[in-house]
Design a protein around this nucleic acid. Structure first.
Lengths: 346, 346
DNA sequence: CCGAGTCGCTAGACCGGTTTAGTGAACTTT
DNA sequence: AAAGTTCACTAAACCGGTCTAGCGACTCGG
């Protein structure tokens, strides 16, 4: 027998299909002794539920969906993303929930996938990332009615619960740190301007600059790629009055910037301090090691998973969760400005 | 009406359920005019198939499974992995097949997931990676009978078709290149010795060394982590007769090695040449940029996806696919040995 | 002009579970 | 002791599709 069904178990145990179903799902309707007997038979026959048959009866699909609208080739580049995915996995696996992952080209295709998966009953909920200004996906997901957790905030995300960290506070802590070191000219290589968190960081820098009376604090938008990160760094460093510190919105851009500085003979941290808004192995292993904002991305993923599972179990329980504000990890890439040529320190 | 079923369509179009099924699946049994009418009604009612209902009838699950037995936190570290995932996605998405991803702790848990997903009819096939010596998973997957594609070879992988690149040839090309530059003392920071490809690379280095009459060619096994990569590099460079070139099995270890060299005042490529067995953004953006073995990991993922979909469509068609042998991309981290202190070159 | 074959369609079984209505027996209650 | 409850269980409907058997109408060949 290739795949035993509850009918097989019922026959072998001498009861009806219904009794088997009750026994296997731990619900009342059978005596304890019968339940034990049925469980034993099921075990012997190595029975497993057929997920499709269960889902057909209106039950859970046992999977949640994550759809990314990015050029597929760029996914591999972001340690942040991979870490998040790992954390999600860990949080979901613990409850035997699988992750359906799909990478699409644009937002239109993304919403299409949401509609399809929802109507195909393929998933029990969604995780929404890369929140944009006036995000069109929020309306779609609210309309579909499936539990959804948004990663990012505290901007507008409709009625959907979100898991978020305080980007603004984090940016302020970076600027305060650099200002305390004596930096007066700070540049910020930002990410895609369409993202909410990019705008929040830009605003935070501007506010901090005003409060601290800095000479200059400029935000340069990029597409998060190493190429644009390198190009923008080159432009900044070629200026007559170049910044003494640059804050990069991602570790990949920061490392690319480090390469440009080396190439142009600008010593780090002697002539230029470098801070990354994202910590990862990358920031640790380059030389000089990068001062970076450490947040436990893996734990973040776990929290998102937990929040989504809770929302699936009880949609009314959904509420926003604020995670720990990222803390700055100081390494070798920052120092007071104007120390001249960098002399290597271990 | 929340979710139209084919019965609703049938009623509205004035035909039977069967006719609707025929029409929607493009199979004979209805006239062209009726088919058009049914399709129009289905469109109007915004009908979508219920994936569970389909799967129940013995049809496809519309998803394939990938299970990874690694500490979850380390997934994010490997650009190789993320790239592969992107490529898989691209190949699968094109055929509207989803990827079920799960990260588990060990091989035992991994095989358990294979069994569960297979018996739950959750996936149509599997992708097997990180092939080990005498891999116990192969027997399990053969027994389950679901189409499976193995990434890696050409070692033993039972009856399962594999997609593989010639690691041996690749390693030989690296050693030939280094020897041509004049290197006689080459070290190899290998990955986990349990992996088949690690063994193949170690053997290839030994054979090449013998053929070329090198002074030294030592392979040091590691766990692929940046920490062990750095530690092993430190040991190698502290030796009296240190190698003039090091080949790293992963880009993360190579970058970590680069950091150690900088820290110990060993110039790259002046006193030490560095080659990475894996190419990625990482290898491009560090300074000096790494000479690395470029294989199109994204394309590799697409090929695996294609092979698996073909095997799902027709299990008898499955056969091994050999992909292009990776080519060495020479960048700034390699040079003839003994040039003394490195003078920076753009 | 009749039998065979084809076409277009319908009725209904079926996949493997869950769930509800119903049934007979034992146990309480008054 | 009759009536009502509870309990353990069965039979069958149901979820939303797929697929097969069959049926009437029409076409074609001889």
């Amino acid at each position: 027998m290739s795949r035993p069904t509850i009918a097989d178990i019922a026959q072998r145990a001498g009861v009806s299909k219904g009794a088997v179903s009750f026994a296997l799902n731990g619900r009342p309707g059978v005596s304890e002794s019968t339940r034990q007997r049925i469980l034993r038979v099921a075990q012997e026959m190595n029975w497993r539920p057929h997920s499709a048959a269960r889902a057909l009866g209106g039950a859970r699909a046992g999977a949640v969906g994550l759809v990314l609208a990015r050029p597929a080739r760029t996914i591999g580049v972001e340690p942040f993303f991979a870490q998040l995915l790992s954390g999600l996995q860990a949080g979901l696996s613990a409850h035997a929930v699988a992750l359906q992952l799909m990478v699409v080209e644009d937002t239109a295709a993304e919403t299409e996938v949401y509609r399809r998966w929802a109507s195909e009953h393929r998933v029990d909920g969604f995780i929404l990332v890369d929140l944009q200004q006036r995000d069109p996906r929020i309306g779609v997901l609210e309309e579909l009615g499936l539990p959804t957790v948004v990663l990012g905030g505290p901007g507008h995300h409709g009625q959907l619960p979100s898991v978020w960290a305080d980007d603004r506070e984090a940016m302020l802590s970076i600027v305060d740190y650099l200002a305390a070191l004596g930096h007066r000219r700070i540049a910020h290589l930002a990410g895609l301007p369409a993202f909410q968190h990019t705008q929040r960081r830009i605003r935070a820098l501007r506010d901090a600059s005003r409060r601290l009376g800095l000479e200059e604090a400029v935000s340069v938008p990029t597409d998060f790629s190493d190429a644009e990160g390198a190009a923008a760094t080159r432009t900044l460093l070629a200026r007559a009055a170049r910044p003494t510190a640059i804050v990069y919105d991602s570790d990949v851009m920061a490392v690319a910037g480090l390469g440009v500085a080396a190439e142009m003979g600008v010593s780090v941290p002697g002539e230029l301090s470098v801070v990354s808004f994202d910590d990862s192995v990358l920031a640790r292993i380059v030389h000089p090691a990068l001062t970076a904002l450490s947040r436990d991305t893996f734990a973040l993923g776990e929290q998102v998973a937990g929040a989504l599972l809770a929302a699936v179990a009880d949609p009314s329980s959904a509420r926003d969760i604020r995670t720990a504000t990222p803390r700055l990890t100081v390494r070798e890439s920052t120092a007071p400005p104007g120390l001249g040529r960098h002399t290597k320190s271990v």
